[in-house]
Amino acid sequence: MQIETEDPHETINNYKLRIDERISRFFDRKEAETKDDLSRRVIRMIREYTEGGGKRLRPIFLVLGYRLFADENNAIFDASISIELAQSYLLIHDDVIDDSDLRRGKPSMHIRLWRSFFPESEKGKKMGEGLAIVAGDLAETYAHESLINSDFDPSLLLLADMELTKTIEMTGYGQFLDVVSGTLNDFRENDLIRLHLWKTARYTLEGPLAMGALLSGRHDQIMDLRLFGRTLGIAFQLKDDILGLFGDEATTGKSIYSDVNEGKRTLLMIKAMEFSDRQDAEFIDRILRRGNVTQEEFERIRNIVMKSGSYDYSVKLMDSLVAKSKEYLNRIRGNSCAKTYLSWLSDYLVARDH
C-alpha cells in the first residue's frame, strides 16, 4: 500500500495512523493470548498508556531509516512499534524516578495503578510505584517481542534487536547521569551534552534510524545516519528543556515547575548561572537543590535566564545543531523522499510547542 506523497506533513500523519493501527493489533493479540484476568487488566493499562498520547516520532524515524534504503512494506510498520513500546517502558520508570504525577496531561502509570488497585491503602502510592516498575518491565519485553515477530530475515532481526538492546542500555547510563547530575557541583555544558547523547539522542533518533537501516540490509552509510540522529537528538532535547521552562502547561501536558523541582541542570540553568552575577547564580543553584519552587521564585528564574543571555545561547546552539544534522543527512545516498521527510521533521522538532 503506497501512501507516500510530496507533502511531508500528510505522509508523516499517514505513517502515524499505520503505527497506531499496529500498536492496537499488538495489544489485541496480547489480551487474547492470556486467560488470566489480572494479567489482562495489566495489559490493558499498559495499552491505554501507550495508545493515550505521543507523537510516534521514534517509530516514524525507524520507518524512515528503512525507507532511505528500501521500498516501503507492511513489515517495517510492524517492527516500528518496538521502539514505541520501549518508550512506554522508559517513561513509566522515569516518572517513578522523578516522582512525576502527570505524563502527557494524564496520570502517570504509578498513579493509575495506585488508584486502580490500592485507593484506600496508606501505602498505596508506594505500592503503585512498585507495580509501575513491573509494568515498565513488561513493556520492555513487548518491545523485543514485536520486533522479533516482524516479517524480516532472522539475521536482520538479530542486528536490529541488538541495536534496540544497546539503545536501551545507553539510555540507562544516561538516566544514571541525569539523576546524579543535580548533586554535582561541576556539572557543565559538556557533561550535559553527554547526558543528552545517552539519554535522549540515542533512543529518540539514532537508535530508531539505525534499526530501520539495519532492517533494510543496506547500512553502508549508517555512520552518517547515526551522526544525523545524534546531532538532531541533542537539539530535540534542548527544545524540550526550553518548553519545560517557557512552554504552555496545557499544551505540553507537564507542570512547568517540574524540571526546576527535580533539580534538572538544563543548559538554560547552567548558562544562566555561568553568565549571571554571584547573587543570581547562587539563587538558581539553591532552588535547584531545594525544589518546591514558589511561583515568585519560578518567575525570577525565568527572568534571570532571559536577561543573562542563557535563553539566546540555547536557541542559537539548537539551531546550529539542526543545521549540522542536515549536513550529515545530505551526505547520505538514499531515497530522496525519505530525506525530504527527515529534513522536514528536523525543522518540526525545534518549532514544536509540545
Rank of each mutant, 00 (worst) to 15 (best):
E31I: 14
E31Y: 09
E31T: 14
E31N: 12
E31D: 06
A32H: 11
A32W: 02
A32P: 07
A32M: 11
E33Y: 04
E33A: 13
T34Y: 11
T34A: 06
T34I: 09
T34F: 11
T34Q: 08
K35G: 15
K35R: 14
K35Q: 15
K35F: 13
K35M: 13
K35H: 14
D36H: 14
D36M: 09
D37G: 04
L38D: 04
L38K: 13
L38P: 03
S39D: 08
S39C: 10
S39K: 05
S39L: 11
S39A: 15
R40I: 02
R40G: 01
R40C: 09
R40S: 07
R41W: 07
R41G: 11
R41T: 12
R41S: 13
V42H: 08
V42Q: 09
V42K: 02
V42E: 08
I43V: 15
I43L: 09
I43K: 02
I43N: 06
I43D: 00
M45A: 05
I46L: 07
R47P: 00
E48D: 15
E48R: 15
E48K: 14
E48N: 15
Y49G: 03
Y49H: 14
Y49K: 08
T50N: 08
G52I: 10
G52H: 12
G52S: 03
G53K: 09
G53P: 09
G53E: 12
G53R: 03
G53F: 11
G54C: 10
K55Y: 07
K55E: 11
R56C: 05
R56H: 04
L57D: 02
L57G: 00
L57R: 10
L57K: 08
R58I: 03
R58L: 04
R58E: 03
R58K: 08
R58N: 09
R58Y: 06
P59I: 02
P59Q: 05
P59W: 03
I60H: 08
I60K: 11
I60E: 11
F61K: 02
F61Q: 01
F61V: 01
F61Y: 10
L62Q: 08
L62T: 00
L62K: 06
V63L: 14
V63G: 03
V63A: 04
V63S: 03
L64D: 00
L64I: 05
G65Q: 01
Y66G: 00
Y66W: 09
R67K: 12
R67M: 12
R67Q: 13
R67H: 09
L68P: 00
L68N: 01
L68A: 05
L68H: 07
F69K: 12
F69H: 13
F69I: 05
A70W: 02
A70S: 14
D71C: 10
D71M: 08
D71A: 14
E72G: 05
E72L: 13
E72R: 10
N73M: 07
N74G: 15
A75K: 12
A75L: 11
F77G: 00
F77C: 03
F77I: 06
